[in-house]
Design a protein around this nucleic acid. Sequence first.
DNA 1: TACGTTAGTAAGTAAGTGATTACAACATTA
DNA 2: TAATGTTGTAATCACTTACTTACTAACGTA
Lengths: 196, 196
Amino acid sequence: MSRETTDIRQEQIKKAVLDIIADEGLQNISTRNLAKRIGLSEGAIFRHFPTKRDIIKGIMDDVANDLIGSLRNIVLKPEKAEDKLFKYLCQNVKYLKENRGITMLLFSEAAHLGDKELKEKLNHILYEQKQFIIKMVKDGIKEGVWDKSVNAEDVAIIYMGIPITFNIEFVLNKNGLNADNFCRRMYTLILKILKN
Amino acid sequence: MSRETTDIRQEQIKKAVLDIIADEGLQNISTRNLAKRIGLSEGAIFRHFPTKRDIIKGIMDDVANDLIGSLRNIVLKPEKAEDKLFKYLCQNVKYLKENRGITMLLFSEAAHLGDKELKEKLNHILYEQKQFIIKMVKDGIKEGVWDKSVNAEDVAIIYMGIPITFNIEFVLNKNGLNADNFCRRMYTLILKILKN
DNA sequence: TACGTTAGTAAGTAAGTGATTACAACATTA
DNA sequence: TAATGTTGTAATCACTTACTTACTAACGTA
């Protein structure tokens, strides 16, 4: 194999993990299989990451940056809360659809527990998302378009279930879900909760 | 170890799986650890279940019977849709809280894919639950108390996220969730979607 | 061109996995 | 009571896991 820098190899390794999850399933992300997919020896993997757990950690950090970053952009834009919430939901669903492997990885780590640091990272990702929702709901209330008796945190909780359910449906029934259509329909329901 | 019938051992083994998941994490349900927890040799496990996968299958069948059965009871009772939906949600959340291990097991199997039969079983469990919701929503519309322009299937989808989100929150943040309070708050939101 | 650093390999390691074996002790029933 | 089937054990199977070792080859730079 030709030589590449650690930076490039790290990206390749992380990508390989997600690719394997998406088309072979979570149980196949062994370091052996990982190396095979990149076309590298198993030992080389450990040249670029000290442990397998560090690979997972790296992927989680990427999610925290990419997904949370793109969602933050939407939240901070100077638009009407109503428009932002819709874009936010669609972006959220789209990201999960395009990065199927990531969600499954996150949930698996949550399910397996055992690792406090990874659990904490997941918690942080979910917490930030929830805060974004809460902010948008409160903004909409301030704008006067939404019911001020509504509990923003409760809305955030019920919202959080939408992308998760989408992902589960998507995993179990790969072909039968249109992301755009899905987010529009769910947004309609959320709006009924929020409207005066 | 004293002799017991296969029926008793099967129950012990399935219980041990859930106990281990709940307090050691999913990664520790090896046949070795399973045997140790029951106080049996590893070989004895395979005396009562042909393979480890059959243990998981057995647990899934239990869920299909217990949870789906108890929910069906609620759905079929001759009460007002409004009351049934509330009881349904509370029962659903309560079951997940009391059987934390089961949910994690189901999601892990979904995430790991690979096994068509288990995936099909999970799909079936989720499908039945969704059908129950759809029925109750349509009943409520027939009763004239709920908005007939609302799409029952969409409500079912957004509903499904609630117990799932509850479970995730519960796993990540064990102490901080009151099931009764949670289901009451979520029910309030669902009602806003349904009301005329 | 020499030299230290980086990135690669093949072949290991110990520990763990699900599953099987040969055999012993017990229970049921003919 | 003798025969038979059931439930247990200890040891071991073949295999996979994450990770390590000893060593080699390419790179940048002085």
